[in-house]
């Protein structure tokens, strides 16, 4: 489908936000779902780029991405009024917690965007929402104010320029040190971070979900390009269709 860019902004060092409008199932899209975005009009870029849906209103959606290569560079050069060929919403998103659950959301860097959409949906349901976000430095951070409105926010940066000096794991530990307990934990970020978050809760009765990244071709479950390994390592799941969100006990991190 063709969406129209209505707004573009550089919101942090190397990080861009695009607001898109047009015909889209805004009312049924789930947090954790993503778009496959066509790069350029010609045939140089044959693979679409997966980008999470970061926020939704009744007639628009936002994506937030870091420029890491040609595709994201091209995306960052879009202007208001440009069309964007997107496929979506794709994938299986975050299952929402039951009412009154105590929820922790953990995001590392560019893993944060889909968690904002999740936090918006969780906030009215939960009794307690804590958010731990980690960035490299303050210059890399984004949407901090928006997260802060939704829950109790604990920040960490590698150099201490914003929040704690340390990683997002230090932010989680600092929240836990305040005696907080959670029923649901949702995390998105680099695999080593996800591993440690899972370990942090190994001895607790917690329902944990992680959102994974893998290189994709089709984005719809047909090519088996994007698989991850299931819990016992005995099978595979497709990140694009069975995920990107998985129960953290069901996949090998």
């Amino acid at each position: 489908m063709l969406l129209t860019v209505t707004d573009t902004a550089r919101i942090a060092h190397g990080i861009w936000q695009l607001t898109l409008t047009g015909t889209f199932p805004y009312d049924t899209v789930q947090p954790g779902q993503f778009l496959m975005i066509r790069i350029g009009a010609g045939l140089e870029h044959v693979l679409r780029r997966p980008v999470s849906i970061a926020a939704v209103t009744e007639d628009s959606l936002a994506i937030v991405f870091r420029v890491v290569g040609k595709g994201t560079q091209w995306l960052s050069e879009r202007k208001a009024g440009d069309g964007l060929d997107v496929l979506g919403p794709l994938g299986t998103g975050f299952p929402l917690p039951p009412a009154k659950a105590r929820v922790l959301i953990v995001g590392g860097g560019i893993g944060a965007p889909p968690l904002y959409f999740l936090a918006e949906r969780v906030q009215p349901l939960s009794d307690r929402l804590d958010v731990a976000l980690g960035f490299q430095t303050q210059a890399d951070s984004f949407w901090v104010d928006r997260f802060a409105v939704l829950g109790n926010l604990k920040l960490a940066t590698d150099d201490g320029s914003l929040g704690l000096k340390g990683t997002v794991i230090d932010a989680v530990e600092s929240l836990a040190a305040d005696g907080l307990k959670w029923d649901y934990v949702y995390a998105c970020g680099p695999i080593p971070m996800l591993k440690v978050v899972k370990q942090c809760f190994a001895s607790q009765e917690v329902q944990g979900y992680v959102s994974l990244e893998e290189r994709m071709a089709c984005g719809v479950g047909a090519c088996y390009g994007c698989v991850c390994q299931t819990g016992g390592g005995s099978g595979t799941r497709r990140v694009c269709a069975d995920g990107p969100v998985f129960d953290w006990n069901g996949v090998v991190l």
């Binding site: 140089e44 044959v46 693979l47 290189r215 088996y224 994007c226 698989v227």
Partner: peptide, 23 residues
């Protein structure tokens, strides 16, 4: 067959590479 380890796909100027491994 489970196929090859990932990354299994990559873009390559006007085309792509795949090594799915007959999953």
């Amino acid at each position: 067959r489970l196929g090859n380890p990932t990354p299994r796909v990559a873009e390559a100027g006007g085309g792509m590479l795949n090594a799915i491994g007959l999953a």
